[in-house]
Design a protein around this nucleic acid. Structure first.
Lengths: 196, 196
DNA sequence: ATTATAGTTGACCGACCGGTCAAGTCAAGA
DNA sequence: TCTTGACTTGACCGGTCGGTCAACTATAAT
């Protein structure tokens, strides 16, 4: 009954902390305390599993700390600060637990499999699209409230997401969560003008 | 005599277009027209190979288009435009050849293996450090020439590199080089103030 | 009580993985 | 001419990979 969820949970953790290709189905089954045959009752292939992992974690993410960060009760631009803080503490906590910064599951998977599976690539792209929309509506609100000067909110939102992912990438490469703290303040300074 | 170089060249291309874990030594040997035994004459392990690949491509990169982009004869901030252009055209050309945007070799490897091999992680971090120094000296020059207002050049350089990698990540996830073109203009708007 | 169905087990498959090795080729130095 | 050592060959290793399957159990509807 909860077997499927347990598989996804274990896989999510392993994929996030290592990589898709490096984690075998055997290991997932062992850690989830099930047999291989049981695994293939729920998933037709490893590819199916990672798809489910992406979908479920995207959901978790959207309703978890992203939802908290983009809290409508917060002033728009403070939500972005909150997001940086959340990312920083999350990565720091993960490093303390595992010894390594895992980075962003979606970013990791995107770079690993985008060239190899177009469906998975599109799924990941959709997750980024969703995140971008959060930034965009926040920016729209900030512009409408005259908190910031008008700008191309669509593109700026995309740029902010890119910067967030890039920060996490660099931080992971140096295995230093402080990188996020150090670079986070520049996120709000990113602007793409309307006519550009 | 050129066997070693041929191995590295083939491996570089395969790692870049797929991933480290997904490419086997057999395939590398086949594409390089050698036997496995020959491979292990030059490299003691697969890990050794990827280390050599990182080192050599970092060299290529530094003396290749990065060197061109950070041309001392260009006005400082134009070098950054040039870099974006170069990244855009390179990724676009690669996509036309292979059907997929390969992204940045270093970024790809960093996210794939940073949690699994600390030596490789440090090597990749060093490559990013080198790139960051390019940005920093460009910014220092721009500040000295009063082209831009004083800022924390160290951190801003790091932030610019992060943004560059993030743009490429998002572009790869959507398999659309135009993303780089669309977001590139924001690179120069990134600022981290001195006191922050 | 019977049947259908969901879930589970554990042995099994061929292919491929990274890596080894003994045997040989070949060019340069003595 | 003989020896050395870099280089190459191709068969081979144990282990693991993703995936299959027939048999079994448990549950629930008929």
């Amino acid at each position: 009954m909860d077997t499927r969820k347990r598989i996804i949970k274990v896989a999510k953790s392993l994929f996030h902390n290592r990589s898709y290709a490096d984690v075998g189905i055997k290991e997932i089954c062992d850690k989830a305390d099930i047999q291989k045959g049981s695994f293939y009752h729920f998933f037709s292939a490893k590819r199916d599993l990672v798809l489910a992992v992406i979908e479920e974690f995207a959901e978790d993410w959207a309703h978890g700390f992203v939802h908290e960060a983009f809290d409508p009760d917060l002033p728009p631009m403070e939500r972005i600060d909150y997001l940086i803080d959340a990312a920083y503490f999350w990565q720091k906590a993960a490093k303390n637990l595992e010894g390594h910064m895992p980075g962003c599951l979606f970013g990791n998977l995107a770079l690993e499999i985008s060239t190899q599976d177009d469906v998975l690539r599109a799924k990941l792209s959709a997750v980024f699209h969703m995140a971008r929309e959060r930034f965009k509506s926040t920016l729209d609100e900030a512009v409408a409230s005259k908190i910031i000067a008008p700008l191309d909110t669509q593109r700026t939102a995309e740029a902010m997401l890119a910067y967030l992912e890039g920060m996490i990438l660099i931080a992971k490469a140096s295995n230093d969560p402080e990188t996020i703290y150090r670079l986070g303040s520049a996120l709000k300074s990113i602007r793409i003008e309307i006519n550009a």
